[in-house]
């Protein structure tokens, strides 16, 4: 998580959930959440922004005006113009096209890394919380061990020893940021497994896997969704921090972080190289935070209509 680089801020952003089970029917529940979410204007703005960004990422080949790899040394460090909407970098590559393609790289790094973190965290938390006993002990001790390492340095250490590919970067960011979520999910499971509907399912002879995934997990989704949203943003920031230290997604793939990093040498007289990816990192992370915030409010059962 990027916050690791900003001193440990207590991660309780994720934790303000009541332990109450959400036993409403899925459809009406989703509709209710959506209605509440819509009231949060900034969250809606964030959502629209993110949808637009994902669209850009998907349609990158059609939106980019030039080949993001094409170097054109005589036209290096040119300010934004009609031909190069965001200017060119130190070897004359078109920043606009790189930012467009970079959205693909950055968003997928964020998405996959968060996906890995959420999957690992959810599975470990769910299994620990559901089975309890020694399983819980072992898994939670392991979680605590991983959690105890200084996150950003653990990330740096591992990144510096694995082969640096975009895939590894996603995995490593994901694998170093799951423990917080595992704890939350475990907490949810601990309280949910005692609920009547779980008892009922068990009495009907449902398997453990079925109970975990069909009965309890849907009811524990709220904090997972919020956490996943926030985590995508922080994974994007993590990647850009790694890029700053020269350990991010390697060339020739442009990530917003790596474009920003190449431009830092030229910050003073070619500020457009850093400005545009910087703004996109900033806006995207901001949008994820607002969406997360909106989701939290919308999903919080204590906030009645």
């Amino acid at each position: 998580m990027a916050v690791a680089e900003k001193r440990t801020s207590p991660n309780n952003l994720d934790q303000n959930f009541g332990g109450e089970a959400l036993t409403l029917k899925p459809e009406s529940y989703v509709r209710m959440v959506w209605r509440r979410f819509k009231r949060h204007k900034l969250a809606m703005a964030g959502l629209y922004f993110l949808l637009a960004m994902y669209l850009v990422a998907i349609l990158a080949p059609y939106i980019a005006t030039q080949d993001y790899r094409a170097v054109d040394p005589p036209n290096r460090l040119k300010p934004p113009s009609r031909e190069h909407w965001m200017g060119t970098d130190h070897i004359g590559r078109d920043i606009f096209s790189r930012v467009v393609w970079g959205s693909r790289v950055s968003l997928s790094v964020g998405f996959v890394a968060a996906g890995v973190a959420v999957t690992v965290g959810t599975v470990i938390g769910a299994v620990a919380g559901y089975f309890g006993g020694w399983v819980d002990d072992v898994l939670m001790r392991f979680t605590e061990i991983v959690m105890s390492f200084p996150t950003f340095f653990l990330l740096l250490t591992i990144i510096s020893i694995v082969e640096r590919s975009i895939f590894n970067i996603m995995l490593v960011i994901g694998f170093t940021s799951w423990p917080g979520l595992a704890r939350i999910v475990r907490g949810q499971f601990l309280s949910l497994r005692e609920q009547e509907f779980v008892m009922a399912a068990r009495a009907l002879g449902a398997s453990d896997a079925r109970i975990i995934f069909r009965h309890i997990l849907p009811n524990a989704m709220a904090p997972i969704i919020v956490s996943a949203t926030l985590r995508i943003g922080s994974a994007i920031l993590s990647e850009s921090s790694l890029s700053f230290l020269g350990l991010g997604v390697p060339e020739p793939f442009p990530s917003w972080g790596s474009i920003l990093n190449t431009g830092r040498t030229y910050l003073r007289y070619a500020p457009w190289i850093t400005t545009f990816p910087g703004i996109f990192i900033f806006l995207t992370v901001l949008a994820f935070n607002y969406v997360g915030d909106g989701l939290r409010d919308a999903l919080d059962p204590r906030l009645k209509d």
């Binding site: 900003k6 943003g233 972080g257 920003l260 935070n289």
Partner: peptide, 8 residues
């Protein structure tokens, strides 16, 4: 504060 890349 959270979204701004600190090095930038």
């Amino acid at each position: 504060g959270q979204a701004l890349p600190s090095f930038w």
